[in-house]
Design a protein around this nucleic acid. Sequence first.
DNA 1: CTGAAAGCGCTTACAG
DNA 2: CTGAAAGCGCTTACAG
Lengths: 346, 346
Amino acid sequence: MRKRPRQIDVARLAGVSPTTVSFVLNGRIDSNVRISPETRQRVLDAIETLGYVANPVARSLAGGQNWLLGVFTYEAIFPIQNQDFYYPFLVGIEEEAAALGYDLLLFTSVIGLDGRRSIYRNGANRLQLADGAILLGLEEEKGELLRLTEEDYPFVFVGRRQVEGATIRYVGADYVAATAGIVEHLCAHSHRGIAYLGMAVDNESARDRFLGYGQGLRQAGLTVNPAWVHRTQTEAISPAFVEAHLAQGVTAFVVEHDSIIDHLYSAAAHLGMSIPKDFSVALLGDPLSGSKLSRNVMAFTIPRREMGAQAVRLLAQLLNDSPASAEQIILPCQFVPGETVAPPKG
Amino acid sequence: MRKRPRQIDVARLAGVSPTTVSFVLNGRIDSNVRISPETRQRVLDAIETLGYVANPVARSLAGGQNWLLGVFTYEAIFPIQNQDFYYPFLVGIEEEAAALGYDLLLFTSVIGLDGRRSIYRNGANRLQLADGAILLGLEEEKGELLRLTEEDYPFVFVGRRQVEGATIRYVGADYVAATAGIVEHLCAHSHRGIAYLGMAVDNESARDRFLGYGQGLRQAGLTVNPAWVHRTQTEAISPAFVEAHLAQGVTAFVVEHDSIIDHLYSAAAHLGMSIPKDFSVALLGDPLSGSKLSRNVMAFTIPRREMGAQAVRLLAQLLNDSPASAEQIILPCQFVPGETVAPPKG
DNA sequence: CTGAAAGCGCTTACAG
DNA sequence: CTGAAAGCGCTTACAG
């Protein structure tokens, strides 16, 4: 079994120094490096003859960069449920990484005893394996992001993340404008009573949506009615709940998650009502296939693929300290009219 | 901005040599290496204090393991189309890698000018960054597999692959038995004229299916009728094609790909026939969601997730030269009865 | 235009 | 039980 050839073997065969081989390989044409065409050809011939392939490990060690981009998720990166959530991000990440010549390092080993993932809990920050990392996941730990920042580890979050005491680089979606757009749309259809149904979470995207809700209302000369704003378990969305709101003048519901849509539909069925005849609904996000019912709901699409791609681009710029690129990027969402909104009955 | 600590920093802080740090890190308990518990603890404390993480690149170069498993695909690993194909493999790969403490290195950078991926074409065999690799993809290059084998690079293919002059380690699915099972099932329903419709490809899985077809027929005392075996473009499956075969006594079609099922259905519609009343069909594989029509077809499921997991396990054993594990693993498929098979009309 | 030499950050015989 | 030193295969100032 012949051992694979080294750079030195190529150099010897071509009658040059390893330095020259390296220069040819890396196409260096600096001001002070110039390889004669003949030498160059001799080196290339030797490479061809020996079937030489540079060892990327040695290359990385000597060169400082290893051209590895980490991908860290706070949940399984290939979830069995809810597979549509991560996938488009990964498509974008892969595309852009490929375009820029990076490989992707998925941190699958960092699972704690509780099944959750953590960057630091396992002693060492494995992220250091990569030149930098893309982070994604709904339930990140702010403390870890802070520590990463303090260590000056280059990373970009996919999704807006705010951490006190640190400036987090991210590529997010404009939930504020998208939500405001939905509300304005409802208002344009003469809705005045628009209730907000959120999940029992408090994170950036929920806050952005609620912000957009307020903006949209104000735009139409309305104000937020606290009695119509709920942040609750989806089970709370009962027929009685819906009925009570309709009685108070609510004519439309905007909701954070498609599971709530399901509940609204079954409540309507219970009440002998139909959507959008008796009331309208809109989803503040993507109708993912996770929903039991695939209805054509008014919603907006989150540019997941583009977010992934931009995150990689941002990280790459950071690593090659390219000229001042943005620290934060917010991409627009696209409005989906759907068929769940109609003018109110009255 | 503090640079990340090196092994030497840990050594200094703990008051030991780099050698000792390395030994502690790699848990070496050879006959002639023994670290006192106190020293060990001092080293661990220093690591903790500094937040030290060994540089995997240096580790590899020096000859150690870096706990990175490569994943190389001959097509985009996160395809936009046909997303169901790779995904289950990846789920299994991630699960098992996580369980064994490996991280995953996705080779996204190795795209050639033609958009195809190639291990060697790009000047450096990046696979070497990882301790070993899982390979998957429909259109592999035999030459590359041969070369990897010659270089003694540890890898496992997901799917049976045969290369002349080399023994390829793989985890495959038992297409032979699964196909034979389908044919036997048809025979048990009194079918005697069973046509085989394949795609215009020649690869291991197509060959295995055809082998199983022959076995199934023989089991029932039948033989392969060459006039009923086709390896062709799906477009060739026209109404006339179907009609001609039925006239010759064909009562059932077994097909390699779900696109052919679609053609059979539209042919039936053209002829005013229905499936399975007028003829039966069965798919030799998974009905993936790629098909336009999601019919409940007789088929078998390929244990993709399990294949991914087993491939990782096999590779890990290889890397830790565990006691003689199998070189090749063939996993059984599961029969799916469906509703596209009924006894023939006559 | 090209080469000798140091260095990247580890591991591992080999001494002691 | 632990350390000094060589070596893994490259890149890159620095000379010339």
